[in-house]
């Protein structure tokens, strides 16, 4: 036997993967189709198409409010979890210290925890403390789940980072602050950036935690859920389709920036 995968196996794997991709994208494609439908309910065959639901999704005051709330939460979570995750990752992957292995395992616990149960426990906790849940409390709830994930993302970068670089900078006359600014942060920048992106997007789409911890404030996902249970209109797929386009733009721009930076680095040599 040769160590390469046999052709029939390769082909099966390609076909299987293609089928899974189709499976994953079916509902997304359907949502985009449904967003252009004229009638109130989506039914095949579609008789008339139009874009008025997009206009409403883009102009309605409520829509702006929903997006702002989601944005405030996701933005705050991204910033805070990168700060927490930066130090968390140093403790996780860089320093050899007494409690490290216990810390590593404890950090996994919130990730492997039923989110809705966590959200409800936090709801009880806030009510018990007399705090009225708003989007502020949702930030805390998101952080409990997202900060450990960001820590793992940054840790992967920290593992591959030669800490002798810091000693070298120190040896060449840099003080503690200069080492951080000139060496540690730039060297870990890709990890910090992808951590921030991850945090933002995970927070943006989160439902299980938000639904119990935002109080009277509503995020986009909460609104989608409510509308789905009662009162479906094509505003739902229109709004959804917009968020799909938004995610595509963020990912494509992110990818292009990454490519451009890599290329300008290569070109400067």
């Amino acid at each position: 036997m040769f160590s390469e995968t046999k052709p029939w196996m390769r082909n099966t794997i390609y076909a299987w993967t293609a089928a899974v991709v189709v499976f994953i994208y079916i509902p997304i494609v359907v949502i985009i189709m449904a967003s252009f439908v004229k009638s109130r309910f989506f039914r095949l065959p579609v008789r008339a198409w139009e874009t008025k639901w997009y206009e409403e999704a883009l102009t309605a005051n409520l829509m702006h409010q929903l997006h702002l709330t989601s944005f405030y939460i996701a933005g705050s979570v991204a910033i805070l979890s990168v700060i927490l995750g930066f130090f968390g990752a140093l403790a996780f992957a860089r320093y050899e210290w007494k409690g490290r292995h216990l810390y590593q395992k404890l950090l996994m616990v919130p990730i492997f925890f039923p989110q809705a149960v966590l959200g409800l426990a936090l709801l009880l906790w806030f009510t018990f403390l007399g705090i009225i849940p708003t989007w502020h409390t949702a930030i805390i709830a998101h952080l409990v789940w997202i900060a450990p994930i960001v820590t793992l993302v940054i840790s992967i970068q920290v593992y591959g980072y030669d800490t002798a670089q810091e000693e070298a900078a120190f040896d060449l006359g840099a003080n503690r602050f200069q080492v951080l600014r000139e060496v540690t942060l730039p060297a870990l920048a890709p990890g910090l950036l992808s951590g921030a992106l991850f945090a933002f997007l995970l927070s943006w789409v989160n439902f299980s935690l938000s639904t119990y911890t935002t109080g009277a404030d509503n995020t986009v996902t909460e609104w989608l859920y409510a509308k789905m249970i009662v009162g479906y209109t094509p505003l739902v797929p229109a709004l959804g389709a917009l968020s799909v386009y938004g995610s595509i733009i963020i990912l494509v721009v992110g990818y292009l920036v990454y490519r451009a930076r890599a290329r300008s680095k290569a070109a400067s040599s």
Binding site: A164, Q165, E167, A168, A169, F170, D171, N175, V183, A187
Partner: peptide
């Protein structure tokens, strides 16, 4: 401390700043 000593080191891993 190292940053104030009149010495420099060539590290085993070289510890060059890759960025």
């Amino acid at each position: 401390p190292a940053n104030l000593r009149p010495t420099s080191m060539v590290f085993q891993s070289l510890a060059l700043f890759n960025h």
